[in-house]
Design a protein around this nucleic acid. Structure first.
Length: 498
RNA sequence: GGGGGCAUAACUCAGUUGGUAGAGUAGCUGGCUUUUAACCAGUAAGUCGCAGGUUCGAGUCCUGCUGCCCUCACCA
């Protein structure tokens, strides 16, 4: 916390608190919420009562919330009381409330939590209002809220003090509530398909399921290093072996890499697996999940009734089926040569400054894929499924039947970002072991440091053919909520220590 | 890590060619029984991010540092 004394506790507010307590007021009482109703509900009731301006009904209500604005007139004050549902004006009049309740106004500050009971009506100008017959303090605020018109705008402060951002900027609260709706809609979609939601370990003895540098931690009692998971994939597929046929997890994963408007060291990945399905099943599911998420956040529609996401100044139409293009075709169209034509590709790698180690296997295809990412991906606005990736860079995917150069995989692009990645899951334990050995031999710091023998053993017991998909929930929320920066969809994004 | 930008009151922001630090909101004092960015009068509030330098004089110019934002690199 800042060393500025005024930031610890505001002196004027502290003084008022002490004066209140000297007068016998409990500034932090225990609440008894039975009768309390959301302000939006009470406001709606006033509308329904059809009270003329300047009149009061006989209906009574109790509300509670934070004082967001105050307009005082000596013997009368209007307070805007805000709770999660919205705002309601409360009118506190001398004589209408007990004298000690009215006296609270003198030591009331913006930001204080209060409760009021009274009768419902409208003021002369028609504003729905609770005319208080009782008024109490629920919690004294010792720091001033941000300026009431502009709110809190500094992006760092907004993220550091999200609790302030949330109450001072209604559209921020709205965005995070919509994100919650989005997650719930995705969950419902999978549950409707008889998927089972599970939780798998976050601490992994061997990291795998993705290429990424891990965070390392230490278990003292076992005297061993553990890694925070970079993906839940290998555990979820063990469950397929165990006979849980449709399984998903909203997995917080951790990648020890740089921060950017699209990257946070910890983020939420939805992974879902379906036995007796394949990569095409996953395309159907992905379309369904994206549409459900879009509807959950109330995505706008164009004149033809199509769902349209506005993101970074561009429009994205989200109506299945989403376009699909083969990786090799996208490569050929953009780069001008066939990706399997080594002699044609090699000079292009050199020109792009990509080091092409060897001329086959993982290192070669990783280099070619680097070229794909540099030349092709920036043009993949989406929504689009890119399919049939080089098998060498897909160690967990099943090769295309009859053509082992390619793998049964797609990546889904939307808003210029990679949003999802799916395979027909590799279930041949011999081939899986060979792929692991190739990865470990590559000595790539992002590749696993050791072979996950237990995973190979699980496959050896027989894993049903299956489709699997990993989807970046934060990025989906970015596109659907029109937020440019991943920080805007994370309640508490990673920040340097204050 | 490279490049560019920003840092002034609790909050949102001005600050001219280098010449005594400004406004609105919030606060404080007083007034007001129908306002809703309430209003009226008065008042207090700043180590101009930090450290150096140039200068008679620096919020302003220069250098370094710190933090943040954008961008490139990185990130399957």
């Amino acid at each position: 916390m800042s060393t500025k004394p005024t930031e610890r506790f505001h002196p004027d507010r502290l003084r008022k608190l002490e004066e209140l307590e000297a007068a016998g007021v409990d500034a932090y009482p225990v609440a008894s919420p039975e009768a309390r109703r959301p302000t939006a509900e009470v406001r709606a009731e006033v509308e329904a009562l059809d009270v003329p301006p300047g009149e009061r009904s006989e209906a009574e209500a109790v509300v509670a919330g934070r004082v967001m604005a105050r307009r005082g007139f000596g013997k009368l004050a209007f307070l805007d009381v805000e709770d999660q549902s919205g705002r309601l004006q409360v009118c506190v009049q001398k004589g209408a409330v007990p004298a000690e309740d009215f006296a609270l106004l003198e030591r009331l500050d913006l930001g204080d939590q209060v409760a009021a009971c009274g009768v419902l009506g409208r003021t002369k100008v028609g504003e729905p209002t609770l005319f208080a017959t009782g008024f109490t303090l629920l919690a004294k605020s010792l720091l001033p809220p941000p300026e009431k018109f502009h709110g809190l705008t500094d992006p760092e402060l907004r993220a550091r003090r999200r609790y302030v951002d949330l109450f001072a900027n209604p559209e921020v609260r709205e965005a995070f509530l919509k994100r919650a709706d989005l997650v719930q809609a995705v969950r419902s979609t999978l549950l409707d398909h008889r998927y089972v939601e599970v939780e798998t370990p976050v601490l992994h003895p061997i990291y795998g399921g993705a290429f990424a540098r891990p965070f390392v931690t230490r278990h003292h009692a076992l005297d061993m290093e553990l890694y925070l998971r970079i993906a839940p994939e290998l555990y979820l597929k063990r469950l397929l072996v165990g006979g849980i046929e449709r399984v998903f997890e909203f997995a917080r994963v951790f990648r020890n890499e740089g921060l950017s408007p699209r990257h946070n060291p910890e983020f939420t990945m939805l992974e879902f697996y379906e036995a007796y399905g394949d990569v095409r099943t996953m395309m159907d599911r992905t379309e369904e999940v994206v549409v459900a998420a879009a509807d959950a956040v109330g995505l706008e529609r164009d004149s033809e009734g199509r769902r349209v996401a506005r993101f970074r100044g561009a429009d994205y139409v989200l109506e299945p089926p989403f376009p699909r293009v083969r990786w090799a075709d996208a490569f050929r169209e953009r780069v001008g040569v066939d990706p399997t034509d080594r002699d044609a590709v090699r000079p292009l790698l050199e020109r792009a400054g990509i080091e092409a180690a060897g001329d086959e296997g993982l290192p070669w295809w990783k280099a070619v894929n680097d070229l794909f990412e540099a030349e092709v991906e920036p043009h993949l606005a989406g929504p689009v499924f890119v399919t049939d990736y080089p098998a060498a860079i897909c160690p967990l995917a099943k090769p295309t039947p009859g053509d082992p150069t390619w793998a049964e995989r797609f990546e889904f692009f939307l808003g210029g970002m990679e949003l999802a990645n799916a395979f027909s899951e590799l279930n041949d334990p011999r081939l899986q072991l060979a792929r692991f050995e190739e990865q470990v031999a590559s000595r790539d710091p992002e590749a696993p440091s050791a072979i996950d023998w237990d995973y190979v053993r699980a496959l050896a017991y027989g894993m049903p053919p299956a489709g699997g998909c990993g989807l970046g929930v934060d990025r989906l929320a970015m596109v659907l909520l029109g937020r440019d920066n991943i920080r805007e969809v994370l309640l508490f994004p990673h920040l340097r220590p204050e």
